[in-house]
Structure formats: C-alpha cells, structure tokens
Computed example of a mutant assay.
Amino acid sequence: MIFGNKRKEQRFLDAVVAFEAAVRSQDGERAQRAQRQLYRHFQDAAEHELTQAGPRLAALLPQVPPGPDGAVAVAVGACTERGADPAACAPHVLDGLARTLAAAERFCERWAATGGGEFPDPEQQPDAALFDRVGRETAVAWLTLHQWEMASVAMLNHAAVRTSLDAGTRTALFQALRSVEEASGHDFKCLAYALLVLDDEPLVVLHRPTGTGYALRMSGVGDTFQLHTLLADVLIGGGHVPGRAPSAEEAAVCRDQPGQVHTTGAFNLVTPAGDWVWNEGTPSDIPVVDGVRLLVLDPPPYERSWPAGRFFPHMTGDLVLERVLAPEEARRLLAGCVIKDA
C-alpha cells in the first residue's frame, strides 16, 4: 500500500519526464500524449512534484512549438501557484510573452491590412481560413495570448519576479500589450495591471482637511480601490486623521488574506493638479512630483462603497507609514496643490 501510494504520487512527474523527452526528440505525437497526461495528473500531484515540474517545464518553453507552448506556460503558472519557484520559472515565461506579443502585433497589422473586421475569438475553434489570411505564426500568437496573460500574471504575482524585472523590459512588454489592445479592441486588463504594480514605492500623501502630510511606502497594490482602503487603515486606523477606519477584516483582505469584505470610501483621491485619481485605476496613475508620487486626500463628495480586497488574489499588498511630515513641509506641499471646482 505504501509503495502503491508513492507510485501514484509520481504520475505527474512521470508525465513531465515523458514530455521533456518527447519535446527534445521533436516527437509531436509523443509530446501530445505526455501533455494530456500532465493535465490528467496535475490536480493530484504532490508538492515535491510541482516544485520540480515548474522550472523544468519552463525551461522547455523555447523548444515547444507555438500553440502548445501557451498551454505549457499556463501549466508552469499553475505549478508556481502550488509551490514551484516563480523566480526560476519567470524568465522563460516572460520571454515567451514577449515573443507572443511581438507576433500578436504583427497579427493586428496583417488583420487590418487584409480587410479588418471583428477579431477572432480565441475561445472559439479558429476557421482554417484565418491561417491563410494572416499566417500561422501570427494567428497562433493572437489565439494563445490569453494563455500567456494567465501564465505571466502568475509570475508577476510574486514580488521577487516583479523587482527582478528591469524597467526597460517591463516598459517594452507594457507598450507592446497596449499596442495590441488598441489595435484589436480587446482588453488584457490583468496583464496590464500586473505590469503596472509598484514595489517599495515611496508615496507622499497630503490630507487637505487637516493640513497634514505623510510619507508612506507601498508594494504589491494591484488597483486604487485596494490602495484607498489601505490608506484609510493606516491614516484613520492609525489615529492620524479623522474618519471611519476600515475594520481589521477589510484591511486584511487588502494585504494577504483571502476574500472580499464590503467597505465604504473615506476620501476623494486627487492629484496635485486637482484631477481625480479613480479607484478603478492603479497607483501608477498618481503623478510623480520632485521624484516621488504625490497624492492629495479630500473629503468624499458622495458615499462610495465596494468590496474591499485584492485585484490579484495571489499578490501580497502592503502600505507602510514611514514618517509624519513636519507641519511646515506639509503646508509647503499643499500650497502647490490645486483645488478644482466640482
């Protein structure tokens, strides 16, 4: 019985070994069979299998043909969500994302050049004429881009991956994604927001009603809804400004706890120029002034509520108060901020 259980636990890793051998020998039929076994045994895989499989499958991605590589990338992402090292997997996944985005950009260009029309739905079986119209490589890139989005977000959920991604690569990925979104009219919001996440990012916040200011640092905050709740927790919950503080549960789900909890907004977030910073956006929308992001908190013009939580459920978020600004510094910064009429 003991040996039987042990053997059963190895079935996923056995499928990985078979898939590696098939890919390296360029045996398409064997690779397909092994890939089916990967999916069949993934759910019951033991932790040690997943931790080994993630980096091994990731390392194979450059050798897997376009099309199947997207599904393998998703499997790598699933392994990281269950314990595989994202830092070991991410370089291969993000390289694959870059290749796929470049080919998807060419797809958009060829689609427009050959008559345009509504873009093919990646969730539907493609018409064979699609490949004749734009070429197989570019068509496959478009059809699998959503898979690369899932896999890449699974990598970017981890701070170690985000902080190791150089600014040039991140910018290039984001610009390529925006190009595809604009040309196709399709939304890849999860990937866009993941590429915009800030880590160890200084943030100066001015509370206009009290004339006070605060130097904070944020990491892993996926959208401004999440930041709004964390600001209320740190500043109101910390006794620095008046208002309704979020409950412990509301704050916790915005940091590292699962789920969502109803909350009510405490502020109106505005830029120094007086423009609203919408909760639906990301903290990257907050402008940089003299080298640091600067945000003004006004009273809310009306009551707004939403389910507090994390845009990325697997991404840990945090906001830390580093110091309270001296009154003179807060006054000087507020003097340069505009109040716009509603």
Rank of each mutant, 00 (worst) to 15 (best):
M1Y: 08
K6D: 09
K8A: 14
E9L: 05
Q10F: 05
L13G: 02
A22E: 01
R24K: 11
R24Q: 12
Q26A: 15
D27P: 02
R30M: 09
A34N: 03
A34Y: 05
Q35E: 09
Q35T: 06
Q35M: 05
L50Y: 10
T51M: 09
L57N: 03
A58K: 09
A59G: 04
L60M: 09
P62H: 07
A73D: 03
A75R: 08
V76T: 01
G77V: 01
T80L: 13
G83A: 07
D85S: 13
P86I: 01
A87H: 07
P91A: 11
H92E: 04
L97Q: 08
R99M: 14
E105D: 14
E109H: 11
W111C: 14
A112I: 15
A113M: 06
F119C: 10
P122T: 14
P126A: 03
A129L: 12
A129Q: 14
A141H: 12
W148P: 15
S152V: 04
V153F: 00
M155D: 00
H158P: 03
H158Q: 04
A160H: 10
T163W: 06
S164H: 11
T169K: 10
T169F: 09
T169C: 13
A172M: 09
A172V: 07
V180F: 12
E182T: 08
F188R: 01
L196N: 06
L196E: 13
V204C: 03
V205M: 13
T212G: 12
T212K: 14
L216V: 00
R217E: 04
G220V: 09
L227H: 07
L227K: 10
H228E: 12
T229C: 00
A232H: 07
V234N: 06
L235Y: 14
G238Y: 13
P242R: 12
A245E: 14
A245V: 12
A251I: 02
C254M: 02
R255Q: 01
P258G: 02
G259W: 09
Q260K: 01
T263S: 09
T263A: 15
T263L: 07
A266K: 03
A266P: 08
F267L: 02
F267D: 02
A273G: 11
N279H: 10
E280N: 08
P283E: 13
P283S: 08
V289L: 08
G291M: 03
L294G: 02
D298T: 13
Y302T: 10
W306D: 00
W306Q: 00
F312P: 00
P313L: 07
P313N: 14
M315I: 00
D318S: 15
E322T: 01
R323G: 01
L325M: 10
P327Y: 05
E328Q: 05
V338W: 11
D341L: 05
D341A: 06
